[in-house]
Design a protein around this nucleic acid. Structure first.
Lengths: 191, 191, 191, 191
DNA sequence: GATGAATGAGCGTTCATTCAT
DNA sequence: CATGAATGAACGCTCATTCAT
């Protein structure tokens, strides 16, 4: 197993366990076992558990953004751009439930909050596609004149909630339901 | 200290610690200390830590529902009823950040999921005021014809997200902002 | 087993293991086992291993000083006082080899140095009997006019060395040899 | 880097780290790093860590004895010979505090005791200069008629103690103080 | 009934040693 | 030969739970 593969195995095992059982249910020894490496090996790739968890998040975003940005055109009308991103996000979460579950766990932790603070301050490139979209929407008066943070909440709050409901089997989303849900969340932010 | 008072002290101490520090930062011994009871005493009131945590949630709802239902009239127009509940919920969370922080921690745990499953299956009375409202909204075609679960997500997803943002100091909500946020979330669900 | 007894068992087990095997050979689990307590129990009596080790030292001094000061008279001639203390110290170490071995380990550690620094600054009562003796010796010109620290080294350096040699079976001290050794170390410091 | 150089780098790095941080603060990986060799390479030169540490001691003595024997004449009077060796030893330790710190760490370990046992049984050449000196002193009745082990303790106990005190900054030795200290220790052993 | 001392499994992490490259 | 990634036993410490008082 190459060095990159080993790192990947560790990351995968950690994400899987955290997604399935939460942070409590993912001790380092169990991550190591599932990754088929020794317990000490993880520490060659990640300084400690905190660093591993933050690495997981970064890893995930690097996998996720290319997917949801595929076919996205910054020249389309704002509504179309939002519908594309919303549906892509929802589909990504549904198709990658472990990633979604991990993100939920992550955002509910001290690191998650810190990470979010950085995002809102605009340090992160991936997020900026959303930020630009919403800033354009407000300035062109296509969207409601509300603080960006609230628009984010109106747009993504529902999408994350239905993704969770789908993954927990409270509902089964199909393409039609996804489209109507994203349209409804558009109604929440548009003027 | 009476039996009921002692139970109340325990519940209060536990909720406070979990809200402040997360589940990790709330060992039983610390809860006992803050509640001014012996560590063993907690086990007279709650079979184990899991049961305590579920008790906390139930306790919280019993305090919260009377507050948000104050002044609520089932005879008002659907829109008014929604705006009342939404704003009341948001104000409750902002005014009781510990309750909100606890709920967030709770919902992000195996118990939280189980609890939610019960809610959606309709076992819990408190939730039913929302259920009735949304069922009426759909049947009178005032709201979109979407599954209840999705309507819940559209309505409460944004409210919870902005409550979190406020409590984490990413934004400061005032009455005007609260009203406009709840109206925006109404736009998401109304026809 | 009473609380005081349990503490005593822990202290005894720890001192024994450290004396026999050094700090490396005295993990907390082994101390607990030898003391017939659970591993966690130690932490009810000592905040952590460092505190335990410092406690051991303090404990030891509280046992040792009364013994070596028995029959000691501050009114005797300086020479007699020194011979008394020197022989008493030597006898104590020979009679309590575990205490001696522990002290040697202790003084060769960061804590030991810190502890020694305090002693030399004069915070500790037990040591002061030596300090007074040497200060009197210098001022009455019975002892050499050297810094106190050097007099200590001249007086106790040999005593500790022969105690070690006896305990390691390089030599067997009897009362006669003890007396002549202490007299020789007196020759080192006297004028 | 030649084989001998590599060995030397390893020995130097190990001694430095152990002197600075104690055995705890000198893991093999850190020694390897400071020596600019691979971790596994150390095991080509030393079977394991224990052997390395013993090698360190031997190495040190090979560097130290030539220094303290410089200018030493076996034909001088016993007193002069002792004063020479004592002062040379003290100066060596003060001038090479890492060597001294290492020796102290070393002598306080199972290996140290074993090493000392060999010395006292007379296997080691370096030590013999002291042994010869003391044996001559006793037989010519210049020194006290005490077992050699005790004479060693009387002579070197104080010297090691003041070296430690100097290195730990409890006192600052100058040439005058060194001379008077060595003379005082001579008083301890001479008749 | 209430207590809190005792427990020990389990945690995150380290490091001497091995061995494939 | 030299390397350094991999290993896993062992460490200090925590904490949910029990039970003698």
């Amino acid at each position: 197993m190459s060095k990159a593969e080993k790192r990947s195995e560790i990351v995968h095992a950690a994400l899987e366990l955290i997604a399935e059982n939460g942070f409590h249910g993912a001790p380092m020894a169990m991550i190591a076992e599932r990754a088929n490496v020794g317990a000490g090996t993880i520490y060659r790739y990640f300084e400690n558990k905190d660093v591993l968890i933050n690495g997981l998040c970064q890893d995930l975003e690097e996998r996720m953004y290319p997917v949801i940005l595929t076919g996205y055109s910054a020249d389309s009308p704002l509504r179309d751009r939002f519908l594309h991103l919303g549906a892509a996000l929802l589909r990504y979460f549904i198709g990658n439930p472990l990633d979604f579950r991990f993100l939920e766990q992550f955002h509910n932790s001290p690191y998650g909050v810190e990470h979010r603070r950085d995002k809102i301050l605009g340090k992160n490139a991936g997020y900026n596609v959303f930020r630009e979209l919403f800033q354009a929407g407000v300035s062109r008066q296509v969207m409601k004149d509300l603080p960006l943070v609230i628009l984010f909440a109106l747009a993504f709050g529902p999408l994350l909630a239905v993704a969770r409901d789908h993954i927990l089997n409270f509902i089964t989303l199909d393409d039609d339901l996804i489209a109507r849900t994203v349209e409804a969340s558009w109604d929440g932010i548009r003027n």
